[in-house]
Design a protein around this nucleic acid. Structure first.
Lengths: 176, 176
DNA sequence: GGATCCATGTAAGGTGTTACATGATTGG
DNA sequence: CCAATCATGTAACACCTTACATGGATCC
């Protein structure tokens, strides 16, 4: 579930940017980060690979497995690299999802450092805004909140705070 | 985006369990928690309301607005209350998503306290397992990790730790 | 006078999942 | 021998989004 926050296409392109691999490898790679990122089903994975191929964003090399089923190794093409780069430079602003952010981090290997810092700063601003909104919501429902409602708010605030702390620390570390 | 982790049906039922409201109210309520939970578009919201109505899980009362467009106030029916209850008692185990969990918290108003505690404990176990998996992944890639990869892992670990801390604290508070 | 909020809804499209189909290989 | 892993893929379906349509009210 839910790699889709960011579009499976780009996740795949991002992984292929690091090194060529088969569809199955992509699945495994993502499954190992399941909790962070969620892994796609074959039903979505393989069609996307085909589409990428037809659009010329990737190339294939079929390796007839010795006694294994043949593996198709996908490799990022130049067009693919450009598409990925273009996507990387798109705004992240509207993308309020945590998973989306982690995925971008994962794919950030292709990002130059200053761009990465920018990216983290953007996220920091978003989380701050979010935090403010939550505090307002908490303040608005003052005392009278429904039973489960303040739990969710409290939880949200705690996570926002933790994320901010991490972002500050990481930004500090990176500017050295 | 992504109320769907839990199925819009039940989110709506859960909100209606607290108090009757219109479709627009549902939207607003969720939008105010946008970052936590994501808000559905009208394109998904209204069809679901109609479906719920046809299935008899909700009742409507049309209030012809004085100089406003008429509002349709939806109210949870007895069948709806039962459906919600049944869903509440389903496993949460496989639901590894953060948003899903927060949503359950939000809808937890209808949960009795011991069930809520159980729920938090389950989440704690999940997060612990996740944490272990991340630590293993971090240990496996020792030093040699790709540039962005350890960032994502670090981020994941920090959040997991924060979430665990919150869960422990909240569990402690609730058992009083 | 134009934008934005209230309030409802529809139609087309995208993207994902589940479940199935295939088939060889390895491990208990 | 049965299950699981490797490895690919298809077809049917569920669900959500975008974009549009309507129309009064209120704010700047």
């Amino acid at each position: 579930m839910s790699v889709h926050t960011v579009g499976l296409r780009y996740v795949i392109l991002g992984l292929l940017a690091r090194q060529p691999m088969s569809g199955y490898d992509v699945k495994r790679r993502l499954k190992s980060l399941d909790w962070l990122v969620g892994s796609p089903s074959s039903g979505s994975l393989y069609p996307v690979l085909r589409a990428l191929l037809e659009e010329g964003l990737v190339d294939v090399e079929v390796i007839p497995g010795l006694d294994k089923p043949p593996r198709k190794i996908y490799r990022l093409s130049e067009a693919g690299r450009q598409a990925l780069l273009a996507w990387t430079n798109e705004l992240v602003a509207a993308d309020a999802s945590l998973k989306g952010f982690v995925l971008r981090l994962l794919l950030a290997g292709c990002l130059p450092l200053p761009r990465l810092i920018e990216h983290l700063q953007q996220r920091r601003n978003q989380v701050r805004a979010h935090q403010a909104a939550l505090e307002q919501a908490a303040g608005g429902g003052r005392e009278g909140g429904e039973p489960g409602s303040w739990l969710a708010l409290d939880y949200g605030l705690a996570l926002a705070q933790a994320e901010l702390a991490w972002l500050e620390a990481t930004l500090h570390r990176l500017s050295e």
